[in-house]
Amino acid sequence: MKRVKNTFFSREFLESLFFVQNKWHQHGVLVHTLRVLYHILKAGEFRFFAAGVLHDIGKPCCAYKKDDEDVEFGEYSFTDHEERSYEIIKNWPFISDYTKQIVRYHYLIRDIKKSKEEDPPRYEIKKKIWDGLDLVLKKDLEKFLMYDDLGKGKKRR
């Protein structure tokens, strides 16, 4: 797959940031991020605050129309957005390694489930990454995924 590099003023970047993502998200990336933060703060899970702010920072950079469904509904796909988000923050010295790991792997659980059925080679790669993580990080990724899901709002279709 070609690596997508949307510029800040591209249609894909701005639309996905402010207006629309896909059928699983009610809002664009910005409002989704604010909703994730709301749920994190409401639960008092302050260790996730920075990850909540940064987990989708790379999403608008890699928004693209993957298939006819994306085109038909005016939506986007964001393959490996979590790795793009990590690439943006990985050298920031003021962000903890813990936060960087949450950002990098926040979609891993869902990716494993999805790729097991749709893309066995990808599944093997993602499963190997999961198996290499420590138990505390795995539990925190499960919890963070819950806040990420709460931030999506209702499905649109």
Rank of each mutant, 00 (worst) to 15 (best):
D70I: 03
M146A: 05
L30N: 10
T99H: 00
I112Y: 04
S77A: 15
T79C: 10
K155Q: 06
D80R: 10
F13W: 12
K155L: 04
N91H: 06
R84S: 00
K23R: 14
H27E: 14
S16Q: 10
L41N: 09
G74E: 04
M146G: 01
R11F: 07
T79W: 13
E45C: 06
E15R: 13
F13N: 07
K59T: 10
F19K: 14
I102H: 03
K126Q: 13
D149K: 15
R122F: 08
L34E: 06
H39N: 12
K139L: 05
R122V: 05
F94Q: 09
L145R: 12
V53D: 03
R104Q: 13
K139S: 05
I129E: 08
I40K: 09
D149Y: 10
E87Y: 01
R104V: 04
I125G: 00
K113S: 13
R47W: 03
Y107R: 14
F48V: 00
G52E: 04
D134F: 03
D97C: 00
Y86N: 02
V53P: 01
Q26C: 04
E87M: 05
G58V: 04
R110M: 12
Y105S: 07
L30I: 11
L17Q: 11
E124H: 06
D70V: 02
Q21N: 10
Y98W: 07
R122N: 09
N91G: 04
L133N: 10
D149N: 13
K152E: 13
N91L: 01
Q21L: 09
F48R: 02
F73K: 14
V20D: 11
Y147I: 07
E72F: 14
P93D: 11
D97Q: 12
G28R: 12
D148H: 12
C61R: 13
K113P: 00
Q26M: 12
D67L: 10
R122E: 15
I112K: 06
F78K: 11
Y86P: 02
G151V: 09
F144S: 00
C62A: 11
G58F: 04
F73Y: 15
D134N: 15
D56G: 06
Y38T: 06
D67P: 07
K138E: 05
K100D: 01
L150M: 15
E83N: 07
K66D: 13
L17C: 03
L145S: 11
K138Q: 14
T33P: 03
K100F: 03
E124P: 00
E83A: 06
T99I: 02
N22S: 08
V4M: 11
